[in-house]
Design a protein around this nucleic acid. Structure first.
Lengths: 273, 273
DNA sequence: AGGGTGACCCAACATAAGTTATGGCAAACT
DNA sequence: AGTTTGCCATAACTTATGTTGGGTCACCCT
């Protein structure tokens, strides 16, 4: 896992990562909660983008950061190393801020790892700081993005304790599927991913052999199919049932809503989906 | 789990929960990062305290909150219900803000449950909002407190995947021990807790029978002992080794430090412990 | 005093998951 | 063309953990 950052796209115009459907540079998870002006502002803060390849650490535990990173295309992992083994403790998909933490913490407690091909954008903390002070609504959204990560962590903890192997895998696949679809990626048939069975096994806390067994169960049960870089959803309802998946924890539209604490208006509150 | 909140201490002066050692009302986890003025300000925001008893839900998933809660004495659990079973996904000790999330989110994605006897203080969101705008340093600390919860979630995920039953229990006990000592509770011999083996089993994702087995292993191995409401540390080093415990993720003094992103000064950065 | 209850302990057994070992297959390399 | 490598599949075996079904004990209630 070498750490070699190649500069890319600097000085170029337009920069990479523009979304094919929306024409927007950011296909942000938070877009529906932002005004167009805020979207423009946020995009303007990105001073550099990079296309990264392969499996390597982008930001290492303990690094001091004066910038934050947004994942524009591809996947990234949060990992914690402890002695020999490396545990995946989080997964990021396009549109996620991957290290907004680094803005409120001096240092990160975990690594951020690139897998497959990814495109990332960087925002300087000094610029973020200014926006945070001037735009309380955006500030709250940034905070929200870190709370969303925590909510996902909690769900992983719950599902890991509640379900057996095949159920855990079903839940994970469903989560990724949902999260991708929330930012306009994948479709009802499935999605592409650079995740290998080794990654999936690590995330689900089981051996690769058992992951293979569990994927076979899902395949033979007619729920989902895994093939090198491609997840095919055979029966979405079946998969959701196996993983007892309830998307409320992802705070999508219609579910638990983003708060408005910095500008409270109780009349805005929505019922639970 | 009935939800019956009895009003307590309203209108009284002084309010309950004053720390016996420091004389401070808050034995906050974040105290060492606050000025005396900030501590005073924070204390002044608490408009009500309550002493709560038994096992019941204090704040329920989906509740709309216009206040946030600080745990002054006792323990609280974060739980997620899914059908019949209830999973504990977090544990709070005195000095923790338990629902700073509710400030940035409209609604919480999980329940907050009181166990044993607990004393809590409430802060109005309108007051918090004012402080957030005027005092960027305190704002950062509040954000930090939610990031700390997330860091603990990640460690739980990692340890749950990395360790077998006895190791997971050892890690959990060590974590609680450390967190209590960080706010001046417990001592080198052990600590008191209302947690039962049922709670511990739930947190560690195993059956109560297996928790009983694991605790027996720890006892016979001379690491730690569990007795109704009391954890006795027989050999701290042994316990730490069994759980591969590394306190860095708790962001204590000397470890990964709280950032200063709202007022960056790179010269302040400290080496990792 | 008697009965109930909740927390805890233990043994025997069933099942889930880890480990070891082997092999297939496709892509990359020489 | 042959070799290597990474990813995936499977079987046989071992180990960890869950389940069932018993207990003890302290506490509370009547």
């Amino acid at each position: 896992m070498g750490v070699t950052l190649q500069k890319a796209n600097t000085g170029q115009n337009p920069i990479a990562g523009q979304h094919p459907k929306t024409g927007r540079f950011l296909m942000s998870r938070l877009r529906h909660a932002m005004t167009v002006g805020e979207q423009d502002l946020l995009e303007s803060l990105i001073y550099k983008t990079q296309t990264l390849q392969g499996e390597h650490i982008l930001i290492e535990r303990g690094d001091f950061c004066d910038f934050s990173t947004m994942l524009i295309e591809g996947y990234m992992l949060r990992t914690i190393r402890d002695g020999d083994d490396e545990q995946i403790v989080g997964l990021q998909v396009p549109g996620d801020f991957v290290d907004m933490h680094a803005f409120a913490l001096k240092r990160l407690d975990h690594d951020l790892v690139v897998i497959g091909e990814a495109n990332v954008g960087y925002v300087r903390h000094e610029d973020l700081k200014r926006v945070l002070q001037d735009q309380p609504h955006l500030a709250r959204l940034f905070w929200f993005s870190t709370l969303l990560d925590a909510s996902i962590h909690r769900e992983w903890i719950m599902k890991s304790n509640q379900l057996r192997a095949a159920g855990r895998v079903a839940h994970l696949l469903t989560e990724i599927w949902y999260r991708l679809r929330m930012v306009g990626l994948g479709n009802s048939k499935g999605f592409d991913t650079p995740l290998t069975q080794i990654h999936l096994a690590n995330i689900c806390g089981m051996s690769t052999i058992h992951m293979s067994r569990s994927l076979r169960d899902l395949r033979e049960g007619g729920a989902a199919e895994f093939n090198r870089g491609r997840i095919t959803i055979l029966d979405g309802d079946k998969l959701i049932a196996l993983g007892k998946f309830d998307p409320a924890y992802l705070y999508g539209e219609g579910g638990l809503e983003v708060g408005d604490a910095l500008n409270i208006d109780a009349s805005e509150s929505l019922p639970l989906s």
